[in-house]
Nucleic acid binder design. Structure first.
Length: 490
RNA sequence: GGCCCGGUCGUCAAGUGGUUAAGACACCGCCCUUUCACGGCGGGUUCACGAGUUCGAAUCUCGUCCGGGUCACCA
């Protein structure tokens, strides 16, 4: 017996926004397919005509391309199971819905929106449809149809018994049939509902693994009843634990805007790398065998397995995401880092060509988000106001008095440097410290303070002086010196 | 509220009857160092609670509690 080729699909609704939860679903679908040598299909679920958003499909293409989830079939690349856009498949759904009516598994419903609303008001807020049209006589149905009365087609659920299915993550789940509503299959505008279109398309497109968030867990029996009605093979279900966000009060709820950025492009805008986002979300709900946490997409494909998907919801942790981003940034080749960081360099140096190489050297080991860069290097552009006591540092053995000497010596030494390079500055200053008989820190602390105007800086004194240039460096050291001398007099 | 699913450090989590209950993030301390960061070392009453099964339970069973999901002509 030959195993069936594994096929998964990512079926987003074009909302113009790629939530990380959606992206994770797409990722897992891709990983399941690719780890088993299968196909990954993209299908656009645009059956809600009221929520159509201009350009939203492009966001989907753009995001998938950006993270490397290449689909084998889809609206843009074609394939033998098209069309891959549901609005172009309307006739298919209608045919199947009508077939279901003929077989006695579905029925026409002519209830108005008002009547349905009134059902809710009178009973409790959770009351469902009362199956008012389920047993309408055939003549009545024909008459209403002929009169052009608006209608929907509903699925006829069994009134008794229960439906059991097996989920690859959650195991065996049983739901009483009386809990299941006679759901709408075909809406009055002729479009199918999500649940119905999914079953039809997943079958027609020969999807073997239906992967989705576990908010669909309780509606799965409806799907099975549909598959059974048609006599189709039921796919493997893979329900994923939800991604949660942490609230101010410590409680958690489904990840949403108030928890921070939740859209893929928002995260990128915030300075996270696409590779980081993919790696991080892969780990939300799935755990590799060993202790390694950094995985490229290719490595994820090699290591992924359904049986290591977790059942419990995971809280999205921006701290860990940020740490991981730092790991990715540090691993970047320097040229690549410079390329990515250059727009941020230019924010601080709009008029001059930033020294990419030296900036990269001081920033790449320290930055965890690209967006931190302007703030971190702002002091290069303008010397901040600072207090003279920044010169005092116990560990470096500096105080207001010896800082004066150090600065004087440093200025004298630096003025003589012919080539303003890190190496030259480095060698000269260290030689000076030796000559003065002080530890490096005693000389370099005051120099760095005067050059930067603050205690915490990316990079050390030498790097800062290099970026500043000779003229500006000497100017700042002079300012520092004067500040100390003025303090002396008071 | 009915139904469904979960519950191992603050967070992500390994763990499938016998472990000193891994690892990572965050936090704290120390080292390295020219500040910070990186790196190195170290630190922590974590198995929701209560019964039961068993020589032995984080692991199996039941109950309780807590959390989440779902109950649309949205997906």
């Amino acid at each position: 017996m030959q195993a069936k080729r594994v096929r998964t699909r990512f079926a987003p609704s074009p909302t113009g926004f790629m939530h990380v939860g959606n992206l994770r679903t797409a990722l897992y679908e891709y990983l399941i397919a690719k780890s088993m040598g299968g196909d990954f299909v993209l299908r656009i679920e645009d059956t809600d005509q009221e929520r159509l958003v201009e350009g939203a499909v492009d966001v989907i293409y753009r995001t998938l391309a950006r993270v490397g989830l290449k689909h084998d079939e889809g609206p843009d690349v074609g394939g033998e199971y098209g069309p891959y856009i549901q609005s172009e498949r309307r006739d298919i759904y209608r045919d199947y819905a009508e077939k279901l009516v003929e077989m006695g598994h579905a029925y026409y419903c002519f209830c108005t929106k008002e009547r349905l609303d009134s059902l809710h008001k009178e009973g409790d807020e959770f009351g469902g449809y009362d199956r008012h049209c389920r047993n309408l006589p055939k003549e009545e149905v024909d008459r209403l149809l002929a009169a052009g009365t608006p209608y929907v087609i509903r699925q006829k659920m069994p009134l008794e018994g229960s439906t059991t299915f097996v989920d690859a993550v959650y195991g065996e789940i049983t739901i009483e049939n009386k809990e299941i509503e006679d759901q709408i299959l075909l809406k009055s505008d002729g479009y199918p509902t999500y649940n119905f279109a999914n079953v039809i398309d997943d079958h027609l497109m020969q999807i073997t693994h239906v992967v989705r968030g576990c908010e669909y867990l309780t509606s799965t029996p409806k799907y099975n009843l549909l598959y059974e009605a048609f006599g189709w093979e039921i796919p493997t279900y893979v329900h994923l634990p939800l991604i949660m966000g942490k609230n101010e009060d410590g409680s958690v709820s489904k990840l949403s805007k108030r928890h921070g950025s939740t859209g893929f492009e928002d995260l990128i805008r915030e300075g996270y790398l696409p590779e980081t986002v993919v790696n991080y979300i892969a780990l939300l709900g799935w755990c590799p065998k060993g202790n390694e946490e950094i995985f490229s997409l290719e490595e994820l494909v090699q290591n992924f397995s359904i049986d290591r998907i977790s059942k419990s919801p995971a809280v999205f942790d921006y701290d860990k995401l940020t740490w991981m981003n730092g790991e990715y940034i540090r691993a970047l080749p320097q040229e690549k880092f410079i390329e990515l960081a250059m727009p941020y360099f230019r924010e601080v140096f709009p008029d001059t060509e930033p020294n990419g190489k030296i900036l990269a050297e001081i920033l790449q080991p320290r930055v965890t988000k690209l967006t931190q860069i302007p703030e971190m290097i702002a002091f290069f552009r303008e010397l901040p106001e600072y207090e003279k006591d920044l010169f005092v540092n116990k560990k470096s053995k500096t105080n207001l008095e010896n800082s004066v000497d150090m600065l004087r010596a440093a200025i004298g030494c630096l003025e003589k440097i012919p080539q303003w390079t890190v190496d030259q500055i480095h060698d000269s200053l260290l030689a000076l410290a030796q000559e003065l008989g002080v530890k490096n820190g005693t000389l370099l602390w005051p120099v760095r303070i005067a050059a930067a105007g603050m205690t915490v800086t990316p990079g050390g004194a030498m790097e800062i002086l290099t970026v500043l240039g000779k003229e500006e460096s000497l100017r700042r050291l002079q300012i520092g010196l004067e500040k100390l001398l003025a303090a002396d007099e008071s």
